[in-house]
Design a protein around this nucleic acid. Structure first.
Lengths: 146, 146
DNA sequence: TTTAATTAGTTGCATAACTAACTATATGCC
DNA sequence: GGCATATAGTTAGTTATGCAACTAATTAAA
């Protein structure tokens, strides 16, 4: 018998991800309040490029846990916003290098600040060691299912 | 200074909800494997109707943490699938009562089973008391931001 | 070396989300 | 009663996701 059998009625918010939905909405709101007009999904792509600029779309797929069509279109939209640019890879003609523009580089500091602020709003009044436990559990869930 | 200041680089999966995305994808896959052709979002609406049949769209909004247009279209699609039916409220002519069909009632047991199974897959190897802690944290996050 | 299989990326279709604007009904206030 | 405001639901436009089918380039195998 499984260790963590859920009682019925307890599973809804876990499955539907109401907490992370709430975090995403709040972050979006905090972006807007500061005049930053990108979506959370676009931000999450920029996030990986800030760590490593010039990676391929496939690498963005792996890093951001999205499929290829999603990345194609996110990169399309980021390109329209002049936040990234596709360059053909020198070594593999199937592959694109996605490069940040200066405008995108300028977004890093402020948006990371807002992300940290949003998380602090989210975790107001939550015991720090419980947060660590929750992070560990969510990481394990991800590893179990990915 | 906030108690739970996140160090940069730690926040990504928390904000983007990678764990709950993974859970939703797995549940969708488990539905499909059993020949159940509804989306997780549709299931989450049915979930509330199984608890209380005949509630209004507005009540579905509150319960499922969605806005009105989202519920309008989810109910549209559920109606197309002949899983629910709109009835005009007797007391308020602006309002609809959303009623389950027999076909939808038949889906309850199997899909709840699959949801529990999916969560057990997700939480494989996770300490039960850590799961309780995680649930508590996520609930607090939701309450902080909703 | 020519063919088969894999990989990178794109496109099309269906579903869903958010915002804003809209209609219709109900409620509150004078 | 009559007008302002609030509430229930719908519609339109943009962005995003998942899946399947597709092109082009690369790698592996016969």
């Amino acid at each position: 018998m499984p260790n963590n059998q859920f009682r019925r009625g307890e599973l809804y918010s876990f499955i539907t991800g109401m907490a992370s939905t709430a975090i995403a909405r709040r972050l979006q709101k905090n972006f807007k309040q500061e005049g930053i007009e990108i979506t959370i999904e676009q931000w999450s792509v920029l996030y990986h490029l800030w760590k490593t600029d010039g990676i391929s779309q496939q690498e963005l797929c792996n890093a951001s846990f999205r499929d290829k069509p999603s990345i194609t279109r996110l990169v399309d939209n980021l390109e329209k916003l002049k936040l990234v640019k596709r360059f053909p890879s020198q070594t593999d003609r199937r592959s694109n290098m996605i490069m940040l523009t200066d405008a995108a580089k300028k977004l890093q500091e402020k948006t990371m600040e807002l992300a940290a602020k949003t998380l602090n709003e989210a975790l107001e009044g939550v015991n720090a060691s419980d947060v660590e436990t929750a992070k560990k559990v969510l990481q394990q869930v991800y590893d179990n299912l990915k």
